[in-house]
Structures are given as C-alpha cells and as structure tokens.
Design a protein around this nucleic acid. Sequence first.
DNA 1: GATGAATGAGCTTTCATTCAT
DNA 2: TATGAATGAAAGCTCATTCAT
Lengths: 207, 207, 207, 207
Amino acid sequence: MNSVHSMATARRDRLKAELRNEILAAARDLFARQGYESVSIRKIAEKCGCAPGTIYLHFEDKDQILSAICAETFAILKQRMAAISKDSGDPLERLRRSGRQYIQFGVDHPYHYIVTFGVAPGAPANKSDADHQAGMECFQSLRECVQSCQQAGQLRFADVEEVAQALWATTHGIVMLLITKAGFPFVEQTRLIETTLDMAIEGIRAR
Amino acid sequence: MNSVHSMATARRDRLKAELRNEILAAARDLFARQGYESVSIRKIAEKCGCAPGTIYLHFEDKDQILSAICAETFAILKQRMAAISKDSGDPLERLRRSGRQYIQFGVDHPYHYIVTFGVAPGAPANKSDADHQAGMECFQSLRECVQSCQQAGQLRFADVEEVAQALWATTHGIVMLLITKAGFPFVEQTRLIETTLDMAIEGIRAR
Amino acid sequence: MNSVHSMATARRDRLKAELRNEILAAARDLFARQGYESVSIRKIAEKCGCAPGTIYLHFEDKDQILSAICAETFAILKQRMAAISKDSGDPLERLRRSGRQYIQFGVDHPYHYIVTFGVAPGAPANKSDADHQAGMECFQSLRECVQSCQQAGQLRFADVEEVAQALWATTHGIVMLLITKAGFPFVEQTRLIETTLDMAIEGIRAR
Amino acid sequence: MNSVHSMATARRDRLKAELRNEILAAARDLFARQGYESVSIRKIAEKCGCAPGTIYLHFEDKDQILSAICAETFAILKQRMAAISKDSGDPLERLRRSGRQYIQFGVDHPYHYIVTFGVAPGAPANKSDADHQAGMECFQSLRECVQSCQQAGQLRFADVEEVAQALWATTHGIVMLLITKAGFPFVEQTRLIETTLDMAIEGIRAR
DNA sequence: GATGAATGAGCTTTCATTCAT
DNA sequence: TATGAATGAAAGCTCATTCAT
C-alpha cells in the first residue's frame, strides 16, 4: 500500500464518515421533533441532502439509525454520571447532583430518553447487548454514589441496592412525567425537580 | 315492543358489547407492547378475529380506541383511590396507603397503565377533554391526601401542589420501572415498593 | 282470497310503495347534490330513516335506484316535449319553445341530464332498453317540430333529420356547458340561452 | 458532469418520461370511458403495468393526472385554434373554419376531449388556476374571431361575448353528441357538421 | 459511492352488499 | 318486512427497501 493510495483511502473514509454524521444529525433532530414512527427515510435523506438509497450504504435499516443515536446518547449520559460519582464533597450532595444531572439529561433529550428507558413491556427485544450494557453502567454510577453515602454513615437504610433502585425510580418518574405528560399543569419545572430531589435526599438521610 | 323483540335485541346488544370488549382488549395489549403508532387497525382486527371495517362500527377512529382504554383505566383507578382518601387515621399513613394502592394498580394492570400513562411523547397528543378531566380527577385524590397532611402540620413543604406532583412522579417511576424493565435485577418487589414509599413519606414529613 | 286478506295486502303494498318513494326521493336529492359516486347507500338510508339493508328489499342494487330515477325523469321530459309539439301557432316559434323547454329541463335537473345524455364513449352499456326507447321518443318530438316547420315552408334546409340533429346538438351543447362548466364566466344564463336559441332559429329559417 | 453521466441521466430521463406518458395515456382512456370518480389509481397502475405507488413518483395525486391531461389537450387545441384566428379572408368564413377545426379536434381526439370538456358536474371542481388559464386562452381565439366579425359589421348581435359563448355551446354540443352517442343513427358525419356550422354562421350573420 | 425510480406491502378509512335475527 | 352488525374488497396514499445505472 503506497502512501498515495492510503491518502486517497483516508480522504474517502473521511468523506464517508462525514455523510454518516450528517445522516445521524438529521435523524436525531427529526426523531426528537416528530417521533420515530413519523420520520421517514425520505425525510432524513432530504434533510441531509442525499438520496434515500444512499442512507442504506451507511445503515442497515431505519432501526440501526435509531440504535446509533441511542448509543451516542447513552455514552454522553454515562460520562456525565461517571464524572459526578468521582466528585469530592458531601456524599449526599453528590447524590443530589447526580440525580439532578440524570433528570436534566432526560428532559433535554426526551425522545432519546424514551427510546432508551421507556420501552414497553414485552416489546421486541431489539435492544442490542451494547445498549443493555451501557444502561447497566449508568446505573452503576448511581449505585456508587449511594454506596459512598452509606460508607459515610449518612444513610437511613441498610441495603444500598434497594436505595439505589428507589432513587432511580424517583428520577425516572419525574423525567417520564415531564416528557410524556406535557399537557399536565405542572408547577414550574425547576421547582418541581428540586422539590422531588429534596424529598428523596431527605427521605434517605440518616437521622 | 314485544318480549321476543327485546330478547333478540338484548342478545344482539350483548354480542356487540362483547366484540367491543374484545377490540379493547386486543388494542390495549398491542398498544402497550408496541406503542400506539406501531399498531394498525388491521393488527387489532386480526388479533380479535374480525374485519378491519368492523372496528369502525364500534369506534369512530383509532384515537377513540385509545380514549376508551384510558377512560376504562381511569374509572378503575379513580374508584380505588377515592376509597382511600376518605379513610380516617393518620394523614401521612393514609398517603402511604394511597401511594401503595396506586403502585399496586399499575403492577396489577400493566397494560392499562402503560397505555394510559406511558405513551410516547407526541403520540396521542390530542386526548379529549373528557380524558383530561378523568385524569385530573384521579390526581385530585392524591392532592387531597397531601392537603390533609399539611392541615395536620405534618408536611415539611409549604406548597401542596408541588408535593403532590413529586409524589406522583415517585409512584409513577416505580410502576414504570417494574412493568417496563422486567429484565432488570430488581430487589424483591414488595421490598422495593415499601422502601420507595418510606423514602417518599419520610422525605416530606415535618421534622 | 277473502276481502280481509286483500285489504291487508293492499295496506301492505301501500306501505311498501311509500317507503320505495321515500328512498327514491332521498336518492334523487342526494344524487343531484353530490353526484352518484359520492352518495352511499348508508347516506340514502339515513336520509329516509331506514336501515341500509332495507333498501335492498326495494332495489336490487345502487344502480337500480339510479335507473328508476332516470326513468321517472325521462318520462317528465317526454311528456313536456310532446305537449309542446302539439301546440298550435307558428311552427318556428313552437320549435323555439321546444328548445327552450329542453334546455331548461337540463339546467333544472343537471345530474339526471348528465346521467341520461352524458354517458362517456365506450361506457358499459348499463342503460336499459327502456331508457333508450325513452330517449328516442324525446327526440321524436323535436323531429316533429322540425317537420312542421318544413311543411310550412319555413326551413332553409331540405333534410329534416339533419336539422333536427343540428338543433339537438345546439341545445345539448348549451345544457352541458352550463351544468359541467359552472366555473366559467358565462354571461347571464337566460340571455345566453335566448341568444343561442335565436341564433339557431334564425339559422334555419327560410329567407 | 462528464458525458457518461449525462448519457446515463438522459437515458433515465427518457424512460421516466415514457412511463409518465403511459400513465397519462392509461388515465385518459379510463377517465373518458368510466368517469373520473370511477377510476382508481390502482386501475391506472394496472393498465400501464406499474405499481400503484409508482404513479406518485410522476404525479402528486389523482387530481394532478387529470390536470396534466387537460394541459396536454389545451396545448394541442390552442395551437390549432390560434393558427386559424390569424388567417386572412372573410371573418365569418374564418369563424366557420374555426368551428370546423374545433369540432374536428374533438372528433379526432375523443378521449382528450371528453376528459377535458366532458367531466361530470362536481367531479374535478378544483381545477388549478393554470388549467383555468389554459382553457380561457383557447376560448380567447374564438372570441377574437367573433370580434373580427363584429368589427367588419357582419354580426346580427351586439354582444361579442354572448355570441362567442353560443357558438362554443353549438360546437361543444355536436362534438359531445358524436363522441358519446355513437349508437345514435346520425346522418353522415361531415354533413351533420357542415349543416350545424351553416346554421350557426347564418344564425349570427347580419342581414 | 451515490443515485433515484420502482416496488410491494402497508396504512386508515369507506363502501355495497349479505344475512341471522 | 325490516334490522343493523359484519364482511371483504376497494379506495387514495406513504413507506422502507432494492437495484440497475
């Protein structure tokens, strides 16, 4: 392989990756605005200025586009959660920040959140092992935050797993409510989130 | 109208109601498993063994099927919740029973619950005023329980609405997790529910 | 057959005929307003207050309803044309009245006119022999009017048939234009009709 | 863009145009025979051997197919009419030639004519402005011929518009009769046309 | 690699018609 | 005789996907 060839190859690869990213960007935006079912391959193609058929050179099918977006999204959440779990400072406060981050992430990426965490019961298990793995890793950060609290003697409960799951339930609940029940007359969003976090933190704090 | 006629009519009405219920059952199951958008009238018809057109003898359109399922759900839930809000005894304990009841309802009727409370964003959107009204009436029971706590001076927070919404978020979260994440290694269900309720109640109790 | 029986039979027949007429009246109105294709059996049934199935006790199918209406309509036109052809007075004036009557009839019953006279080339010959016969009888009245003109020496042309057909073409043309090109900016209708008739009559008058 | 590309593109474009024309031909024939409402996209697709969806690659919807047929028709007719309206010679004779031309066009292209001028009332209704414009331009040639007659003092009537519309009615009538009533015992076609034209011209000539 | 025309299955909905009651 | 629930076919149209170029 001479260098001229490899340079040409590199350029080609770069162009290919660019189009792939344009497709992802277009799809991400459309899915978020209109929902997976309502977005057609043609709409994605039109938005990123290529032909419908071209999409199939980069993704096997429509589902794979969604999977790629979810993987991306998940990676960001995982990174943010991990970063917080390594913060210094009061463990319970770290837990509060962690919950806040999780909720904010869900509210900021509602459709991705739904896709990743909101699958219906008995749904066709089209989530790859990678997705499942990523989900577990996110939860792991939360579990570690709870563990720290217990080690610092700040927990009213003995079972770390139980508390971590209860906290996940709480944060998941507020995210789901906010993004799926947009029509409900919620109190101001930040206030509701802070109250919920406060309730949860005080509910587990050792007395 | 002679008795033969009314007997024949009654029989026909019964058969009609039966098919209506079969349609509702099929739709509820499919909506819950695959999401509203992914379920076609044809799929519903096939599942309940009738022709697609027959559905339209019982429901105006697809939206009306969803509405009927929601109405059904709210009717059951409202009945369960209303009974508790009139219980006597310690207000915070009543609130705990109320939350337990809500969670139990979701766990007992996962399909009703997921269709009514867990639909993806943007999907049904245009729920009728009647649906909205019914949903608000259910929430009202919870709000009243919280109100009692505050009037008894047992609340750490000033804003009743805020607390009621935070509690709804918590109970919604645990239900959704349990029915949509069946594969997750949750701790024993009753224990998780009780821990979550305990966290929530202690989190709002006046100190 | 005793008299009680025949009385009962008579009553039954009368009721049956009444419903048949109500169906025809409803269909006539709906066809005229919305066109044959856009009117459903259900709409007709609803308008005359009976069940869809009931219609089939009186008419074989939807086409037969239309045929019945056309037959009715044709009978009226035939009668009107025949009456005029027997008028006394100037033959050319009689011809003018005859044309005016024909045009007015078409304008007053646009859909029936279209159905009877406006069938497309190669269309399925679903017109019964009776319809064809009725059409020929209508034309016969016109032919007789033209014949009178010739016998009175008022015709510029020798061939009665030729003139009769040319006149039919003219009157048919104005009716079709007025009822199928409603969007065209025609001059005031009566004026257009009179001008056309005047052109035709003066065009055939002996000099 | 190299020549290989443009050659491939040209070929593809040609094939596409061919199919478009096949669709138009199929639709024209079916619309003329069965009427706009009775013809389905599927029937058109079947007749021209393509899938129903393919039609939508060439036409936005069913209405647009009708519009395209009308446009085609008007283009041909307009060209024929315009040529005559610029002829020199006696204005009334020019008018006769114009009418003859119009009638001949209808007889030569019965399907084009019936679809464009003979659609049932209420069927297409919402013809686009473009369609309307094209139709008016065709009529304009006739109007101009009539105008010349008047300017030459050869008209018995004062209102040019009135006469133009009456003449249109006459020529439309003979065309429609000839192409839709093929079973009627008409006199020899040329003779009938000439008699009708003669009647019309003499009917408007100043005395 | 990219195109875009074409497909075939699918959609929601409406319809003429049938038939058990 | 009349009912009206049910059917099966069809409507216009959209879609994910394929494939010759």
